[in-house]
Design a protein around this nucleic acid. Structure first.
Lengths: 348, 348
DNA sequence: ATTCATAATGTGCTCGTGAACACTATTTTA
DNA sequence: TAAAATAGTGTTCACGAGCACATTATGAAT
């Protein structure tokens, strides 16, 4: 465990050359004779040289610059938490020579996305963490990254075969299964289930499909007939109330409602207004949702820990850059179940 | 945001003195004239000097040594995870000049505890993170720490008025409430509840009391009569089976069982053997528990994330030592609810 | 006024790395 | 063969803080 750390000077002595030569070998700068090279190489292979990061950092001023590309929270408040995660990581890593630059784009304007990623490509970054919000534009961006040898890491939105070193996010199918299981534990045998998708133009509808399929998957395994599961697609621009009330009127045994995104508070509001009592499950710790959770109108919230997405993402990048660690191509983090009783520690 | 970092040299120039004088003022080493002192002080006040940690670390070889005092996992496998947390933190912080030394004691031998903490007191540590397993011995240790000015941080076991800078742990009352709520959501109105304490000599029984009181607290608020809640105290050296079966035979409506520690798998085994079906809630992701969770015999596990206890503890210490941050006197982390469906990400 | 003590201040080296630079040895070109 | 080019190697400085040591200034004592 207590392996001595070798310095360039140590190696130089062992290989009977000067520090400069060792440096040239280590960094492959050339201008080294075959004999000197092989002697240094031999020593290097034997001792597993790890450069002193502290000294590197002191010398270079800044070891790495990392870019983060994500939507600004003034457009969508969901993004406030991920930004907090970035700030946390920034505070932690700045003193050791890692600079983090944040590029916020407008999530309803792909032009602003392009503009920001161009800046990143023109900067001199060691890596980039990106929420690939726009599909087509992201593919272009990824190609450009590859061309300039810039490693990219994605979070929040998963893109198949993106070529990213790692994706950090939540397993959506699993989160749907979790919702199904939670609901199934509480509901009785004959009760029926409702899945509500509340669409926004912005949000990726793939997300919701994955969640629904996980939900159905679990219930099927638990012996719930497909006919007991109802689905409601509502666009946010329409009124939510009429279709919901209609459905609840039609199906009397409908005892559980699963809302596949953070807009669950809207449903909670309608239920409260009409004094209806249903088991209600949704996503994310928005203020509105927390309020209804505390009031007992929402039973379970599934939490993506958006803050963790970015802080974990940045940490992964640093592991990659500094320690050349083996990085898994997907880093999932837990599907957290939040009820009123364990809420507190999640929101501080 | 983009505040320039001042160096000692910068300050020296601003105050028209030499680097050495600034150094003496910053460290209060004396040998400075009143005029020079006040000039430097003035500059210092204005610019908020933050010493360059990288340079400090390089110069001093190691910035801080932190001691961790906890039980070894060869005695109790529960402690394997906290140790992993220590290792994770070690890997992360060693390259920036923070050394972490672990002292493992035998949790059934207070002598070994004393022996290890003596070593720590004789070493030159900047801080210590301790699982204060033995109450009386810990008070002695804390006194000694105070005397020698060694800041101490506790985790896992909470000691009232310990004088620790921070305690890192889980809110036990809240975890009891959570168990109560989960169970109450599923059980019907007339159903009855059972709390099982499985004692080990080693474990602090305070823990279990806090959990039970949280459990009762919640159920009382939810309108469950105290008479509907039964308690079973079993010593691990006895046979668990007879008292449990007797209780279940006596009370027919007993539909939910809450085990206040990680020994829940023992109860699950008995239920399985006798083909009994009850809602079962317990603690921690031991292999045995996971097995029963997957088999559907355990419904919910409450998870303390033991790994997080130590890694968060060490991080807190570093914030304290390096950044002199305001540290809350208690750092709680979430009461995680684990079911079969969201298990996976918690165990990797 | 000169010597000595001491307070106050400045200088220089160290930590390990990176990079510019200087130097030597060998080969190429006129 | 002398001059020039180039390959190979070693030396030196800088990064910022900390600390030992050298230097200077100030006052006291003879």
């Amino acid at each position: 465990m207590k392996t001595k750390r070798y310095t360039l000077k140590d190696i130089a002595e062992l290989a009977h050359v000067s520090r400069g030569t060792v440096d040239r070998v280590v960094h492959g700068r050339g201008k080294v004779s075959k004999e000197a090279y092989s002697r240094v190489k031999q020593v290097l292979d034997k001792i597993d040289y790890q450069p002193n990061l502290v000294a590197q950092s002191l010398r270079k001023g800044v070891l790495h610059e990392i870019a983060v590309l994500m939507p600004g929270y003034n457009y969508e408040k969901y993004w406030k938490k991920p930004l907090l995660g970035v700030e946390k990581a920034t505070n932690e890593y700045t003193p050791i020579g890692i600079n983090i630059r944040t590029f916020l784009f407008n999530p309803s304007d792909s032009g602003s996305y392009r503009e920001k990623y161009t800046k990143i490509l023109n900067g001199r970054f060691s890596a980039v963490l990106v929420a690939p919000f726009f599909y087509k534009e992201s593919l272009v961006f990824f190609e450009a990254c590859k061309k300039s040898g810039l490693p990219y890491f994605t979070f929040n939105t998963y893109i198949e075969n993106s070529g990213a070193v790692t994706h950090v996010g939540q397993d959506l199918v699993r989160s749907g299964r979790t919702a199904g299981s939670l609901m199934h534990k509480v509901l009785a045998d004959g009760d029926e289930y409702l899945v509500v998708h509340i669409n926004e133009e912005l949000e990726n509808s793939m997300h919701m499909q994955d969640k629904e399929s996980g939900f159905r998957q679990f219930l099927a395994e638990a012996g719930v007939a497909p006919g007991q599961i109802h689905v409601l697609n509502i666009d946010i621009s329409e009124k939510l109330e009429p279709p919901l009330l209609q459905k609840l009127g039609e199906v009397d045994a409908l005892k559980g409602i699963y809302v596949t995104n953070s807009k669950v508070w809207m449903i909670a509001g309608i239920l409260q207004q009409h004094e209806l009592d249903r088991l209600l499950i949704g996503y994310d710790l928005l203020d509105e949702n927390i309020q209804y959770l505390n009031a007992g109108k929402i039973d379970y919230l599934i939490f993506q820990n958006p803050q963790l997405q970015t802080s974990l993402g940045i940490q992964t990048i640093i592991d990659y850059l500094l320690f050349k660690q083996e990085i898994p191509d997907k880093t999932f983090f837990p599907v957290e179940i939040v009820i009123r009783e364990n809420l507190k520690e999640f929101i501080t």
